[in-house]
Design a binder for these strands. Sequence first.
DNA 1: AAAGCGACCGAAAACCTTTTCGGAACCTTC
DNA 2: GAAGGTTCCGAAAAGGTTTTCGGTCGCTTT
Lengths: 342, 342
Amino acid sequence: MARSPASRGARAATLSDVARLAGVSVATASKALNGRNHVHAQTRARVLEAAQQLSFSPNSLARGLLAGRSGTVGLLTSDLVGRFSLPILMGAEDAFGAGQVSVFLCDARGDAIRERHHVQALVSRRVDGLIVVGSSTDPRPPLVEGVDVPVVYAYAPSEDPADLSIVPDNVGAGRMAVEHLIACGRTRIAHISGDRDYSAARDRVVGAEAALEAAGLEPVGEVAYGTWSEGWGRAAAGLVLDRHPELDAILCGSDQVARGVLDTLRERGRAVPEDVAVMGFDNWEVVATGSRPGLTSVDMNLEELGRTAARAMFDAIDNEHARGVQTTQCRVVIRGSTAPVA
Amino acid sequence: MARSPASRGARAATLSDVARLAGVSVATASKALNGRNHVHAQTRARVLEAAQQLSFSPNSLARGLLAGRSGTVGLLTSDLVGRFSLPILMGAEDAFGAGQVSVFLCDARGDAIRERHHVQALVSRRVDGLIVVGSSTDPRPPLVEGVDVPVVYAYAPSEDPADLSIVPDNVGAGRMAVEHLIACGRTRIAHISGDRDYSAARDRVVGAEAALEAAGLEPVGEVAYGTWSEGWGRAAAGLVLDRHPELDAILCGSDQVARGVLDTLRERGRAVPEDVAVMGFDNWEVVATGSRPGLTSVDMNLEELGRTAARAMFDAIDNEHARGVQTTQCRVVIRGSTAPVA
DNA sequence: AAAGCGACCGAAAACCTTTTCGGAACCTTC
DNA sequence: GAAGGTTCCGAAAAGGTTTTCGGTCGCTTT
């Protein structure tokens, strides 16, 4: 590591050092550096020069101690490895990082003990707020400890309706998907979903069925619940095609399921999108673009969700804050697997 | 948000509050809470009771100010969205989180300006160390600013050999892959790599060719460089099969490329693994397990890399620290796409 | 020339914890 | 009863910054 030439090993330059070098008091140095008035222009220049020379960097710990706020927030995920946390985290980091706020990242690994430990550490560090990111959209118990800072729950809502939670609009996503298929002229739409235990799967089904009903259409067969895997998509597509060969679209619970469905369709010689249109959810870039044809998918806008959570956090820090569950919009990303009927 | 019942709105309990409630001085309260001796057992109990009652949480800012170290480290990624940063970050967070260290996460989005800004902020927060995570294994310029804390570069090494860098052993990975194929009895091994501009691709090729030579085997055709995509895998597999129909194994530059190769092999009626064995790199779980058959792959052990970087950071914080580029081991994960010849 | 006023600067307190060192209280022993 | 030792507790300083308030200096006005 390269040590800065200015600092001779031991400790970083302090405001006193700057003041001494500039020949003023610490008070004046502070005012000069922070752009407060009542400082002569020439004096200010001397201070800035001295600070530059010592590569002075104000100690945020001392500043935070005095101000009573640290300028930091905690981001507590329960499952970082899952791919849903990451974009949320990016959005939040984006919104905070643009300001003066730094982000503590903690991953609880789905362990409640670990979570408590992390919360305790964050409280001790006097974070100004806390964003709790869940690993699925199913509700989770609120943080129990005496947390004295604003908390925003993202992705997974808190079970306590008095808390503020930001979640993706899965019902709306299901609706948008079906509306897109209908707009493509499809009328015989089957639905191969994911794991029934996930509210995300059920909510998307609710939205899809509502859109079908609104259009006066009947679903083709029952919704097939299974797992979130490609294997399930392959197997389920076989079953559905056997029973309902007349279908002209398959809505899939996730992009992975859709990949499996595409596999089976190709094996059976059903052309996509001419014969059958296919859609997925999540818009998982690498999965959706790697398939043949590219997969139309509903993007859950998770990065926007993260930004929204961060903004809600800002609001909660100074003003009094909102409560309840808020949803964020999704959007359809059209690729080759859906197209208007000829 | 639920406010703790103990804190009546305004500010968190301080050590003075605890001391007052326990009827002792702050000095004694501090000693009691930190388990120092020279405190009567009964007095200690009174203090602990008081702290509990006020849900006291020591102010890490004040503690850090006094101790001269904050107990935090910065994790600076250049591309969080890429899937390589995440496991490294998890490993590091794991290693740090187990101790008393909290982690600041910053994403520079590949922007040098943004990176400087984040470094400045981290220095101001008096982090005890810094891990810089790159987005590819190609060397990157070192942090220029007068950073007065230990820096460890992970994944992407620093261009300055005086810095400490931890990178995955791509050469070893290539070697291990070919050794596995040879152990399966394959002798006519083709190599479809990824983007030639990435040192990861070139290093893997180096290792693979070394292993072939060590076994007295000739490569089948030239190494095919292209992109890291499924599409490239599909196309390249077609070309290679046309020219070298005798091959009995294809080593692929990444799991995504391997997925494409598998596609083409199936279309051409070549059985995997009986006829042709296929391997990838990265062991990207969802890609490698979703394919038919499951994809044998070389895991780069990125989480371990993150942990190693964190440990190196610890060493650098107290002792004087190491320099140069260190590599971490990879490992072969065997699935259905490779098997001994019958 | 005295008074008044504005512009600029500095001393000191505050934030909260840890550590050092001196002092008080109590007990033992001669 | 005094000397000495042990055990426990408290005063105070340190760490770096910001803010408040009082003070100094020079200039203007009458």
